[in-house]
Amino acid sequence: MMASLSENTLKQYNTTFRLWWRFCFQTGISVYEATTEELIRFLHNIFETANLKYGSFNSHRSALSLILEPSVTDNPILNRFMKGLSKLRPAAPRYNATWDPNSLLQYAERLPNPLTLQELSRKLVTLLCLITGHRLQTIAKIKLSNFIYGEDAIQILIADPIKTSGRNQLQPTLHIPFFKEKRFLCCASALTEYIDRTSYLRHGQDTLFLSYRRPHLVASKQTLSRWVKEFLQAAGIDTSVFKAHSTRHSSTSAALRNGIAVDVICKTAGWSQRTATFAKFYNRPLVPPNEFARAVCNVSHSRHADLP
């Protein structure tokens, strides 16, 4: 049963359990045998003391459903209370607008050549996020043993579980095309350069990204997030507003503006099948997966063999 929960979910639920334990201790409630009314008191207490959105309350409910009776957490009274929370504290998107990737791409083109390993690391992880539309969690799980080198592109299979992994769910494949027209924006070329320059640091390590500082351990998702944020800031993007995850918003919006069908964007970026089904309602045609990355960088088809 514990294995059914991801590591990140467990960390998130631990916050709930600490709050619940403290509330039960202070009010004399049984931790494992509370009633629906007592659960509502707990959620209402959080509502009055913290300015949280509906998603946080729903997460608390999900966590406590693991330790309380189903009749407590799936109760008509609680359902009505949760509906009230959704009205009073509605979930809202993190961003009301997104940034244009052109400013970042222009900055990347102006960088001196050759780059230091630090600069190359930041540039590569940011470009990977941008041209794939995937989460940093996915980028952090890239392994060299899952590369498939083609004439026009590199395909990367993501074998490890990610946020959207589940039964009957296909694991994502990242498509990294070679760009001839914009050599300094060619993520595939930066990828091969990074692999060559870190080969002597690996000592058998299969994970793609390593820390550029000694002892060159595997770079965590948090480290990659910091690299992306630093690259965005250097490109003039307001990182007090836009975090590393905003690359996902920016790239998918740019792809849509450049004519990529919604269902292709959803499939490429790894969004749910329900979203893809909604996109198919508009009867958009499918295009080759490499076209997503090309549309973001606004370049035409090329072959890496022609790169200087």
Rank of each mutant, 00 (worst) to 15 (best):
H134S: 05
A91V: 08
P112Q: 13
A92T: 13
P76A: 06
T132C: 00
K141I: 04
P172Y: 10
A97G: 01
K83I: 00
Q155E: 15
L170E: 15
L115R: 08
K143M: 03
S86G: 01
Y95L: 02
R94D: 02
E193V: 03
P114N: 03
L85H: 10
P101H: 09
D160K: 07
T164F: 07
R94L: 10
N113I: 10
I142H: 02
V72F: 10
A91Y: 07
F81E: 07
I131D: 10
H175D: 12
G150D: 08
P90E: 10
R135F: 10
Y95H: 02
K83F: 05
S189Q: 14
T98R: 06
K87I: 09
Q106E: 12
D74E: 09
A190G: 05
R110W: 08
L144Q: 13
K141W: 05
P90K: 05
Q155H: 07
L115V: 00
E181T: 11
F147E: 04
T138N: 11
T126F: 06
D160H: 05
S121Y: 11
F147H: 02
F178L: 01
K143C: 07
F147S: 00
L120Q: 08
K123P: 03
I158Q: 07
R80G: 00
R202Q: 14
L78Y: 10
S199R: 15
G133P: 13
L78R: 05
T164Q: 13
L191N: 04
